[in-house]
Design a protein around this nucleic acid. Structure first.
Lengths: 259, 259
DNA sequence: TTGGTTTTGATCGTTTTTGATCGTTTTTGA
DNA sequence: TCAAAAACGATCAAAAACGATCAAAACCAA
């Protein structure tokens, strides 16, 4: 029997296996076999060990991770709806960030795309109320400060009056905000009053407020009012944004950029 | 037998070995052999010595560093082997929770097991600084309030002075705490000073402090001091907990339960 | 130098890990 | 519902790693 030179230590290999399963959520035995370059027998033994540790759960054909990830974007249609536009908007927003900036990341899928771009920026301080954004930066990257507050399940954000106290303690150079609705007459609106309260609080604190909103948000009005349009400094949207609305916004002093 | 001129003294070689393992995180015996130009027997003897010093942990085929990953459970499968005990401890702790209680969940894998049991309890309010506990309860279950603060990557918890403000605003019936070390003389200790600060703050605020610690933690002393043993009301551990230590704790007024 | 101690490397029987085989169980799809 | 296919677990043999032991080499003090 010819055994190959062992490439790595058993704990090291299990760690890699663990990460593979955690990142993908699930993994098949055959995939792990070829990824880790070991036999199925070894994969099974490792899976057994990881299950014993409670990190995964074995299922026929492979294993699923027990280490819950905050983000389940895969099944989230809303996030994928205008993904391309959101990426472009995020990239445009990224350009505004300077070295050493202290920035705020709001909840919402567009801002989440921006968070993904920040994984390598160790020079920044990121304040956020979004668990998903935090999860995105949890491995490495900028200094992350979470606002605290009550967890709102739908948006996976921390909201409410408890947030206020912490926000008073930090400096925010730039706040990158999302929104549900953007209307000339009604300003920024969102679904939940607590969420709205937190957003408005942030906008008061930040030196510069940058709104990331794809074109579909234009003209929409949601339930809870966040703020006037005047409290926004820069709006970043995509090419589909209605020109008429853009003009009206510029007239009110907002800078509008269409990525 | 021909031995080469010894290139370096034994302590110097061990120092180099230590650094090699620390830098890579892991190292194979064969690699160390060729790197240090000594026989495998010597490598093994050195590894044995370094393990005795607690700097590394030997595994089949090589060794894993214990230094940069400071005894935390990142690479440490041995610590997580106690999953069964942790589950039992968590179940015991679960019994202490009354209807409508407002409880605090600390970081750490044992407390995380408790969090998993709370998914159905919509009557509770859970305050936590642990992102993993929050993720566990993110789908459904109790009202969740996060403390906020700076994200500590290794433990995935929010720590530091910013936490203080929010803790002052909530009532905590019971705080379920984890720990790295539990010693009669040195009390509760953990690796990170910020983490220790947050823990002690919580313990001051909570009406009742319940410590969840598997037997492994008994007698261990870590870097940063959290509090005296006296600030703990109830300790829940497993059957392997040293009887002598349990007696000493009871003498000091703690209730000790072994699941 | 010399004699004694410590350190090192080689040898060898034992243990651990790994991969292949094979009968059994589970899943899939007609 | 039944049969083929896939996945599984148990078992065994090969290979690598291990620990104990012993002798040679290096070291050290007189």
């Amino acid at each position: 029997m010819i055994l190959e030179v062992r490439a790595d230590l058993a704990p090291e290999r299990r760690e890699r296996m663990r990460n593979l399963i955690r990142k993908a959520g699930v993994a098949r035995v055959e995939d792990l076999k070829s990824d880790l370059k070991v036999s199925v027998a070894t994969v099974r033994r490792d899976l057994e060990a990881l299950e014993e540790e409670g990190r995964i759960r074995r299922v026929h054909g492979g294993a699923v991770s027990m280490e819950s990830r905050l983000e389940e974007e895969v099944f989230d249609d809303k996030a994928n709806l205008a993904l391309k536009e959101k990426r472009l908007i995020a990239e445009e927003a990224f350009k505004l960030i300077g070295t050493g900036d202290s920035i705020y990341l709001d909840g919402g899928s567009t801002v989440l795309e921006l968070a993904r771009l920040l994984a390598g920026r160790t020079d920044l301080t990121v304040v956020t109320n979004s668990l998903r954004a935090a999860a995105e930066l949890a491995e490495s990257g900028p200094r992350v400060i979470l606002t605290g507050g009550e967890l709102r399940r739908l948006s996976q954000t921390m909201v409410g009056p408890l947030t206020r106290v912490l926000l008073g303690q930090v400096r925010l150079d730039k706040a990158f905000m999302g929104t549900m609705g953007l209307s000339i007459d009604d300003g920024l609106t969102t679904t939940d009053p607590n969420e709205a309260f937190t957003k408005s609080l942030v906008q008061e604190h930040a030196r510069q407020v940058i709104l990331l909103a794809d074109a579909r948000k234009a003209g929409k009005i949601s339930f809870a009012r966040v703020s006037d349009l005047e409290s926004v400094d820069i709006l970043i949207s995509d090419k589909n944004f209605p020109a008429k609305t853009a003009r009206a916004l510029r007239k009110r002093g907002l800078k509008v950029r269409l990525a």
